[in-house]
Lab assay of single mutants.
Amino acid sequence: EEPGTYGVALYRFQALEPNELDFEVGDKIRILATLEDGWLEGSLKGRTGIFPYRFVKLCPDTR
């Protein structure tokens, strides 16, 4: 996996908008950016989108 910051999904998130990223509990999401209003941008399984930061637990930065 690529170096960078990752978050592990604490809850299932179902995308409601085309720019959102849906995921299941336990998915490991690569964090790409921190956005305003409590949203993160991340990538998972070749898809990129935004999601609420409270749905993931950030992992320590590992290489």
Rank of each mutant, 00 (worst) to 15 (best):
E1G: 11
E1C: 10
E1A: 06
E1I: 13
E1V: 13
E1R: 12
E2Q: 06
E2L: 13
E2T: 13
E2K: 06
E2Y: 14
P3S: 13
P3R: 12
P3C: 10
P3N: 11
P3G: 10
P3Y: 14
G4M: 15
G4C: 11
G4K: 10
G4F: 13
G4S: 12
G4N: 13
T5H: 07
T5C: 11
T5G: 02
T5Y: 10
T5K: 09
T5A: 12
T5D: 05
T5M: 14
T5W: 11
T5P: 09
T5S: 09
Y6Q: 00
Y6R: 03
Y6M: 08
Y6C: 06
Y6N: 02
Y6D: 02
Y6P: 02
G7Q: 09
G7M: 13
G7H: 08
G7L: 01
G7W: 00
G7F: 02
V8N: 03
V8F: 08
V8G: 02
V8R: 09
V8A: 03
A9N: 01
A9S: 05
A9I: 02
A9H: 00
A9Q: 01
A9K: 01
A9D: 00
L10E: 04
L10I: 14
L10S: 07
L10H: 05
L10K: 08
L10A: 02
L10F: 01
L10Y: 01
Y11N: 11
Y11Q: 14
Y11K: 15
Y11P: 02
R12I: 02
R12K: 09
R12L: 04
R12A: 15
R12M: 05
R12D: 11
R12G: 12
R12S: 11
F13R: 15
F13Q: 10
F13W: 06
F13A: 01
Q14R: 10
Q14P: 05
Q14V: 12
Q14H: 13
Q14D: 09
Q14S: 08
A15P: 08
A15V: 04
A15T: 14
A15M: 04
A15Y: 02
A15G: 14
L16C: 14
L16H: 15
L16D: 14
L16V: 15
L16Q: 15
L16I: 14
L16M: 15
E17C: 09
E17K: 15
E17L: 13
E17G: 14
E17Y: 10
E17I: 02
E17W: 06
P18W: 07
P18Q: 13
P18K: 08
N19K: 10
N19I: 04
N19P: 03
N19F: 09
N19G: 12
N19E: 11
N19R: 11
N19M: 06
E20T: 14
E20S: 07
E20R: 09
E20Q: 14
E20V: 03
E20L: 12
E20F: 15
L21K: 02
L21A: 00
L21I: 04
L21S: 05
D22A: 15
D22K: 12
D22I: 00
D22M: 09
D22W: 04
F23H: 02
F23M: 10
F23W: 04
F23R: 03
E24R: 07
E24C: 07
E24K: 11
E24Y: 07
E24I: 07
V25N: 02
V25R: 10
V25H: 07
V25P: 11
V25Q: 05
V25L: 00
G26K: 04
G26E: 00
G26S: 03
G26W: 00
G26R: 01
G26A: 01
D27N: 07
D27W: 06
D27Q: 03
D27K: 00
D27M: 06
D27T: 04
D27S: 03
D27F: 01
D27Y: 05
D27E: 09
D27G: 02
K28E: 11
K28Q: 04
K28L: 05
K28N: 07
K28V: 10
K28R: 13
K28G: 03
K28T: 09
I29K: 00
I29N: 01
I29W: 01
I29P: 08
I29D: 03
I29H: 04
I29E: 03
R30K: 15
R30W: 00
R30H: 10
R30V: 02
R30Y: 07
I31D: 02
I31L: 03
I31E: 05
I31W: 00
I31P: 01
I31Q: 12
L32F: 04
L32C: 04
L32E: 08
L32V: 11
L32H: 13
A33R: 14
A33C: 09
A33K: 13
A33N: 14
A33W: 04
A33F: 03
A33D: 10
T34C: 08
T34D: 12
T34R: 10
T34A: 08
T34E: 13
T34V: 10
T34G: 06
L35W: 04
L35M: 07
L35Y: 10
E36R: 08
E36Q: 09
E36C: 07
E36M: 00
E36P: 11
E36N: 11
D37N: 11
D37Y: 05
D37G: 12
G38H: 07
G38K: 00
G38A: 01
G38C: 01
G38M: 01
G38D: 11
G38L: 04
G38S: 05
W39N: 07
W39G: 03
W39T: 06
W39E: 08
W39I: 05
W39Y: 11
W39H: 02
W39R: 11
L40K: 00
L40W: 06
L40V: 14
L40G: 08
L40Y: 09
L40S: 08
E41H: 12
E41W: 14
E41Y: 09
E41P: 04
E41T: 08
E41I: 07
E41V: 08
E41A: 07
E41M: 14
G42Y: 00
G42K: 00
G42R: 01
G42E: 00
G42H: 09
G42W: 06
S43I: 06
S43D: 08
S43A: 12
S43Q: 11
S43C: 09
S43H: 08
S43R: 08
L44C: 11
L44T: 07
L44H: 07
L44Q: 02
K45P: 07
K45D: 14
K45I: 03
K45M: 08
G46D: 07
G46R: 04
G46A: 04
G46N: 08
G46F: 03
G46E: 06
G46Q: 02
G46V: 04
G46L: 02
R47G: 04
R47V: 06
R47L: 07
R47H: 09
R47A: 05
R47Y: 09
T48C: 09
T48D: 01
T48E: 04
T48M: 00
T48Q: 10
G49H: 01
G49W: 04
G49Q: 00
G49C: 07
G49S: 06
G49A: 00
G49E: 00
G49L: 00
G49T: 01
G49P: 00
G49I: 05
I50D: 00
I50K: 15
I50R: 15
I50C: 09
I50H: 03
I50N: 07
I50E: 08
I50T: 09
F51D: 01
F51A: 00
F51I: 02
F51R: 04
F51E: 01
F51T: 03
P52R: 01
P52C: 03
P52H: 02
P52Y: 05
P52T: 02
P52N: 02
P52S: 01
Y53P: 15
Y53E: 15
Y53I: 14
Y53A: 15
Y53F: 12
R54K: 15
R54Q: 13
R54M: 05
R54P: 06
R54C: 08
F55G: 02
F55S: 08
F55M: 13
F55P: 01
F55Q: 02
F55E: 04
F55A: 12
F55K: 02
V56A: 06
V56H: 03
V56N: 03
V56R: 00
V56W: 01
V56Y: 06
K57P: 02
K57Q: 12
K57C: 07
K57Y: 07
K57N: 09
K57T: 11
K57L: 05
K57H: 11
L58K: 05
L58G: 03
L58M: 13
L58E: 03
C59R: 08
C59P: 05
C59I: 14
C59N: 08
C59G: 10
C59L: 13
C59D: 10
P60G: 13
P60N: 09
P60V: 11
P60C: 11
P60W: 09
P60K: 14
P60M: 08
D61M: 11
D61I: 10
D61Q: 10
D61A: 12
D61K: 12
T62W: 08
T62E: 13
T62G: 14
T62A: 13
T62C: 10
T62Y: 11
R63D: 15
R63G: 15
R63S: 15
R63I: 13
R63E: 07
R63W: 10
R63T: 15
